[in-house]
Write a protein that binds this DNA or RNA. Sequence first.
DNA 1: TCTGGGGTCCTACATCGT
DNA 2: TCTGACGATGTAGGACCC
Length: 417
Amino acid sequence: MERKSRTVTPRRRIAHLDMDAFFASVELLRYPQLKGLPVVIGGGRRKVDEMLVERYAGRPLSEVPPQAFPLLKDYVGRGVITTATYPARQFGVGSAMGMMKAAKLCPQAIVLPVDFDEVRRYSRTFKSVIREIAPLVEDRGVDEVYIDFTEVPGGQREGGRVLARLIQKSIFEATGLTCSIGVAPNKLIAKMASEFDKPNGISVVFEDDIQTRIWPLPVRKINGIGPKAEAKLHRLHIRTIGEMAAQDVDWLVGNFGRSTGAWMHDAAWGRDDRPVVTESEPVSMSRETTFDRDLHAVRDRAELGAIFTELCQKVAADLQRKGYVGKTIGIKLRYDDFRIATRDQTIEGFTADPRTIRQVAGQCLKRVPLKQPLRLLGVRVGKLAREGDAAAAPPAAPAPATAHRAAEPIADLFGPA
DNA sequence: TCTGGGGTCCTACATCGT
DNA sequence: TCTGACGATGTAGGACCC
């Protein structure tokens, strides 16, 4: 019998890797004496190191007794928790929770500020470890990546489990940190799978497992369904992914719009053909800050003006450091009642100049009501281009004042640039 | 008990030129 | 000359993510 040779297409295997309690785990490497204790990261502005060094001069940080660390119950000020160690999570404390609420749940938790430089250092390290083993890696922030296992030697063994184990082991050897990995036919399922067995777990999901392992999960587990979509689905008596999959696509489109409805239907059936994207360009850069206390445009004019200028300088510095220029400049502010207002303006040429940004952002500011106290101010630059690519463009000049709504007289308060 | 900072993407709407 | 369709572009806001 004649046999035709055929190309065997390997099964698509995509991994999602999530570092376990990343920010907290990085801190624990520095303060190993806190291992096993409830620790939350976030809020604090003051370096804990400095405080401890003052109190325990001459002794290594790893020897400072746990009782010396600041506790959540003593925390004052605004802020939310970035992450919590697993012992702290047992008290119900978790990411994005307000400090005050967390203090009620677990007053004895130790609170540490975020050390972004250290976190970024570990982030680079674990990603480079992964790339040495599997080169197709998509960055999803400091503590997450997608990895395409499909063509990697050994990437198909046990559905990807063998390679996932190797990556886990290599990261631990290089950093002392653990991670959780989900391997599945696509990014959507891989992302859900990485949550199945945390911390330090590996979950492998195949197409045939979707009905048994994915459909029983709440709709909120789908990456892209947030609190709003969840609430609406609940109102429509849909709570699980399986219940969503059982709906007619036209019904979902009717309720959520063409794009979202169709996407929801695909997601519920585990369909997702998004590739693993190894390179991407930023779309915008911004800086924003929440004030220690609400500020008023009239009473706190000087303070606001100084903060505003500083934000513009920081965005400009970010752009310059990373080699980008932009042509849409905007502002964002949050009032004391948490309403948000944004305004932006596109100018003729590209810029990364702090004075130009300050001037155009100042014009945007004149178009928002400023009678109410403010809690946050932000400055954004969008429509980015690489500095070299934009070189041929005309030089940046602030656009002439356009026919926007009339400024309120009070709006001038942040002063001239 | 109030809710950070830095992003992306989507939608709706206005405006403008053809 | 008027009207409408339409695509491109800018703007504002919202949802969502880490």
